[in-house]
């Protein structure tokens, strides 16, 4: 029996990879469902754009993420990512073009052809056609449902962990993992039925990368701040204003949007901002997924499952 701690993206991907290899396991999470940082994620599978600032390892881990998710959960959209900048921040687009691959330069016509509602709003954009996005909440529920079908228990009480323990608790595992730190993120869920956008939009922003991910039916996830902080309180007015101003800069129709939800959570990160599997106090830990949980968790989970299901080497006679 294997016990996976944590039912966020790291835990559920790990449990899925193990269950698919026929391993007996269960998942323990204090709950309630929806409480962890994974539920606030953008769900962008954007290895190309993220390679600005992230080490190449992140793009490598994320290269097959869209395929992994599409094989297991509904709603994986492969429509690419569109990056725009206010006219005066055009230098930021040039910089991003230099630092990343897999993009095309678009002019106003190109932007209008992809997203008609953005016609005339931006002089130029970068389009990353190979990228994808998903709705994290739908994806996590689908993984949990898939696990239950394979008779994997997901328990929200706290029975003692049995057997090999794989700790995927994110920032909650900080006590056991010296060096793991929290990077606070804040987001909003908006309803703006006047606007039709079909792919993640990023706005180059001087302080943090602002993105807007369509969730369908007029819903948009707007995120996310990056604050080196352990604070767990609600979103601040400053962060709200910065996010809202960015949305309004993307399209003034957002002025009429309803703010359905605001959220804040703590991303777990190692000093190099790279995720890793480690063994501490007899437990395996998968942690430090930072802002790349949905992008890197599948590859990490598959690696981890391969490692622990590999047969023991035979003893020499």
């Amino acid at each position: 029996m294997i016990t996976v701690l944590g039912a966020g993206v790291a835990g559920l991907c790990t449990a899925t990879a193990l269950a698919e290899r026929g391993r007996a396991l269960r998942v323990l999470d204090p709950g309630p469902e929806g409480a962890g940082a994974s539920w606030l994620a953008g769900g962008m599978l954007a290895p190309d754009v993220e390679s600005d600032g992230a080490p190449p390892e992140v793009a490598r881990l994320g290269a097959s993420a869209a395929d992994w998710w599409a094989a297991r959960v509904p709603g994986v959209e492969r429509r690419g990512t569109l990056v725009v900048a206010a006219p005066r921040d055009g230098a930021e687009l040039d910089r991003l073009a230099l630092r990343t691959r897999g993009h095309q330069r678009l002019g106003p016509e190109g932007i209008a052809a992809l997203e008609p509602d953005l016609a005339g709003r931006f002089p130029g954009a970068l389009f990353y056609p190979d990228e994808a996005h998903l709705d994290p909440r739908i994806a996590l529920k689908a993984l949990a449902e898939g696990l239950r079908k394979r008779r994997v228990e997901i328990r929200h009480d706290a029975p003692p962990a049995e057997g090999e323990v794989i700790d995927c608790r994110g920032i909650a595992a900080r006590e056991a993992l010296p060096g793991l730190r929290a990077v606070r993120g804040e987001m909003m869920l908006l309803r703006c039925p006047d606007l039709r956008l079909t792919r993640p939009l990023r706005l180059m922003h001087p302080r943090f990368p602002v993105y807007l991910v369509p969730r369908g039916q007029g819903l948009f996830m707007l995120g996310a701040t990056m604050i080196e902080s352990d604070a767990t309180g609600p979103i601040t007015l400053r962060s709200s204003m910065e996010l809202m101003a960015a949305a309004f800069a993307l399209h003034p129709a957002f002025a009429e949007a309803a703010v359905l939800e605001t959220g804040s959570g703590l991303r777990p990160a190692w000093p190099d901002n790279l995720p890793r599997v480690s063994r501490t106090d007899g437990r395996l830990h998968l942690n430090g997924l930072y802002r790349h949980g949905f992008l890197t968790a599948p590859a990490l989970a598959e690696q981890l499952a391969d490692t622990i299901t590999r047969p023991e080497p035979a003893h020499a006679p």
Binding site: R181, E228, S229, D230, A231, T236, A269
Partner: peptide, 11 residues
Amino acid sequence: EAAGAPGANGF
């Protein structure tokens, strides 16, 4: 918001 827990900030 970062000053909530002195000493605890990993950064």
